[in-house]
Computed example of a mutant assay.
Amino acid sequence: MTDGDPKKAGETILEVVDNQINANDPPLVKETFNRLRKLGISRRESKKYIACALSVEIFDVVKNSNEIDYDRYFTNLQNLPEMPWDDE
C-alpha cells in the first residue's frame, strides 16, 4: 500500500473487511454485514460501507500516529449505512 495506488489501497481494505467477517473478529463486523444485507444492500456494497468505517480508523492511525479507536469504529459500524462523516 506504500506505492500510493488508491485502487490497491481500497482492495486491501476490502480484504481486511473480508478477513474480519470470515474470522468473526471483531464480531460486530459480521453482525453489521448481516444487518446491512437484511436491509437489501448488496454483499459488495455492504463490505464497502464497513470499509468506510474502517478507513476512518486507518486514516487516524496514519495521520496522527494514534491507535485504532475501537469505540469509534464500533459506533460507526452500528450507525451504518449512515456514513461516519454525514454529521460533519
Rank of each mutant, 00 (worst) to 15 (best):
L14Y: 02
L14E: 06
V16P: 01
V16R: 11
V17S: 13
V17W: 12
D18C: 06
D18L: 04
D18Y: 08
D18G: 03
N19P: 04
N19S: 15
Q20I: 00
Q20A: 07
Q20T: 00
I21A: 10
I21V: 11
I21D: 02
N22W: 00
N22T: 05
N22S: 07
N22G: 05
A23N: 14
A23T: 13
N24S: 00
D25I: 08
P26H: 09
P27S: 15
P27I: 11
P27T: 08
L28I: 15
V29N: 01
V29C: 08
K30Q: 12
E31D: 14
T32E: 00
T32C: 06
T32Q: 01
T32L: 03
F33M: 04
F33K: 06
F33C: 04
F33E: 04
N34A: 10
N34K: 13
R35D: 00
R35W: 06
R35G: 00
L36K: 02
K38Q: 12
K38E: 11
K38T: 04
L39V: 00
L39M: 14
I41L: 01
I41Y: 02
S42A: 09
R43Y: 01
R44Q: 11
R44N: 06
R44M: 01
R44Y: 01
R44A: 08
E45H: 08
S46G: 14
K47V: 09
K47C: 05
K47Q: 14
Y49C: 05
I50Y: 00
I50H: 01
I50C: 02
I50K: 02
I50W: 06
I50G: 05
I50M: 00
A51H: 10
A51R: 13
C52I: 15
C52V: 15
C52N: 15
C52L: 14
A53P: 08
L54A: 07
L54F: 02
L54W: 02
S55T: 14
S55V: 04
V56Y: 07
V56G: 06
V56N: 03
E57Y: 02
I58R: 13
I58G: 09
D60G: 10
D60L: 14
V61C: 13
V61D: 06
V61Y: 12
V61H: 11
V62H: 06
V62T: 13
K63C: 15
N64W: 04
N64I: 05
S65M: 11
S65E: 13
N66R: 12
N66W: 00
N66V: 01
N66A: 10
E67Q: 12
D69H: 07
D71L: 12
D71Q: 10
